[in-house]
């Protein structure tokens, strides 16, 4: 039984059209014209208990809109959503007890209150027992280092501290499902790493189901086995990250520094797609030609000073997919 089921989910927003000029202003007083914006169109997926899924896509793809519908604060235009057997928007408060949510862009803590008091409020709101509250606080404090700012009002926290406080807050009531909308946005490298370790740990140890949106592919690479890729409100890929990597990972880049700078470099099986002074970037498919064959070709005419072969990170794979389209994606799951 999947814990999250989404079928043919759609969300349209009506956006009031802005008329320009005086006449336009008068006209819009009488009647406002609206444009329909399809933020999510026909998305389906299901997620099993304990899974950790990366929900990714370019800006404006419809990720946050989907998450909002899963939390119940947005009503779908059509289609169905079920989270732990509950229809979120019909039963928002019941749903709230099962889920934890972090919106990286905004805090859910009370601005004016010292962080610890926000936690105490949440304890009452979700009726967490004293014992459980203490256990959770101890665990979170240890991993996230909350003690350094527990008595600071939320509005004085740094972004990284605030994010740590927010994720701890979202887990105080032991939800089964955690929605993370850009939980690492704006964090420095070390803070990101800590956040990832924490997410991984609660997924492993508490078997919490996690849906994670992010623009940092390293998050996905380190945390998720499965990713759902969406664009323009539609699902373009749903499956293992390893499969995408395998498919696109065949491309390698050979970077060579030459002693002289030739005008161009013609190679069989490789394509020089970038050059800077005497450095060349050569793209090749590992199945068609090997790096040593390419190097041999180059040394026939030039002297190589230095070289490296790069494997594509998921980061560059995804950015290529965003730019070049989705035709080549393996087995797009159509539900």
């Amino acid at each position: 039984m999947p814990i999250i089921e989404v079928e043919h989910l759609m969300k349209d927003f009506m956006i009031a059209k802005r008329e320009t000029g005086f006449l336009g202003a008068v006209k819009s007083l009488v009647k406002r014209e609206h444009i329909k914006k399809e933020a999510v169109k026909d998305i389906s997926f299901s997620i099993k208990e304990g899974e950790m899924v990366g929900y990714i896509g370019p800006n404006g793809a419809g990720k946050s809109t989907t998450i909002k519908m899963l939390t119940g604060i947005l009503v779908p235009s059509s289609g169905s959503v079920k989270v732990n057997g509950i229809i979120p928007y019909e039963n928002r408060q019941e749903n709230a007890k099962n889920i934890g949510v972090v919106f990286g862009q905004r805090t859910q803590l009370w601005w004016d209150l010292p962080t610890i008091e926000s936690f105490e409020l949440l304890k009452e709101i979700y009726q967490v027992s004293d014992k459980r509250f203490k256990e959770n606080m101890d665990t979170f404090t240890e991993i996230l280092g909350l003690d350094e700012f527990l008595n600071t009002p939320v509005r004085q926290l740094s972004l990284g501290q605030r994010m740590r406080a927010d994720i701890a807050a979202s887990l105080l009531h032991d939800p089964q499902i955690l929605f993370l909308d850009e939980p690492t946005i704006g964090l420095d490298v070390v803070a990101k790493e800590k956040m990832r370790t924490f997410i991984k740990e609660i997924n492993n140890e508490r078997k919490i189901t996690v849906i994670l949106t992010t623009h940092d592919m390293e998050d996905i690479e380190k945390l998720c086995e499965r990713m759902i890729l969406i664009d323009h409100g539609q699902k373009v890929y749903d499956g293992e990250i390893a499969v995408v990597k395998e498919r696109f990972g065949k491309t390698r880049t050979l970077i060579v520094d030459l002693e002289e700078s030739p005008h161009n470099l013609q190679l069989k099986g490789g394509e020089a797609f970038k050059e800077e002074a005497s450095r060349f970037w050569i793209r090749f498919n590992r199945d068609e030609v090997s790096a040593s064959e390419l190097i041999a070709q180059i040394t026939q005419t030039h002297n190589i000073k230095d070289l490296t072969v790069e494997e594509p990170a998921i980061e560059s794979i995804i950015s290529r997919i965003y730019q070049e389209g989705y035709q080549d994606l393996p087995e797009i799951v159509k539900v």
Binding site: K68, L74, Q93, A96, V101, Q108, I125
Partner: peptide
């Protein structure tokens, strides 16, 4: 205006 109120809508109160 900022939409922060929707986060309160999600709480069980």
């Amino acid at each position: 205006r900022t939409g922060d109120i929707s986060l309160e809508l999600m709480r069980p109160f």
